[in-house]
Amino acid sequence: MTVSVTPTVKWVAQCYDHNEKHEHVSLYLLEEGDDVVLVDSGSFYHREKITSEIEVATDGSGLDAIILSHSDYPHAGNVRSLGGDTKGIELVASSGSPEQQGLPDARKCSIGDRLNVKGRTLSFIDPPLADRSHTTWIYDHSDGVLFTADGFGNYHEPNQCGFISSDFDEMIPAEEIYEYHRDNLVWLRYVDPEKIEKALDSIFTEFTINAVAPVHGNPITGKDVDVYLSRLYETLSRIAAEYDVG
């Protein structure tokens, strides 16, 4: 299912079924004139659906570039099948060891840098919430969208697969935000929540963020971003408080 997040950013929503709850394993399309840039490539698990969604979204003309937040399999699972190592489709990745990550031909983007990809200006940001050293968050200057990879996720009910944050009755539930981060960013048990809040605040101050686009959650738009942030801060405090080193 493809849902518009901002005028030129589309969400290709894909779900993994954890019995009662779903977890998104999504990707995003940036449309720049006739060019289409993919942010992350999803899991091999959804390959057929992703391939046909992209076929439709590009009117059959295919992608022009793929940017990876990191090389983790559920994010980088379709790089080759979508043509990410061919001459016509540029591959951009953050890894400092592309050969060890299985992406020897990628153009490197470094955290702190700004790159132009197919006419789109993108900034690469040190992610306060991630599951790999070389993960980068990606900020799209055109539409003000922050792509947060493994941060800002949530589980959802089977009828909420294509919801953006404003489709929920009272925004994305705090409990779903908490359970996602507890299960997936296990290291949060050791953090001082204030240090992460400070890092997030500085990102949200530096960049004008109209929408947050996670891979493992529903996109968060407009004023919902502030509500999400306050629920996320509660989550961080709760995870840290619940883990007792003894």
């Binding site: 992610p127 050293s133 290291w187 050791y190 953090v191 001082d192 240090k195 992460i196 890092a199 080193v245």
Partner: peptide, 21 residues
């Protein structure tokens, strides 16, 4: 300082108590 990127956010006392464990 590179690989455990989250070490920049830890509660030092708590983390070091875990190392003792």
């Amino acid at each position: 300082g590179r690989v455990l990127f989250w070490y920049q956010y830890v509660d030092v006392e708590k983390t070091n108590a875990e190392i003792d464990n």
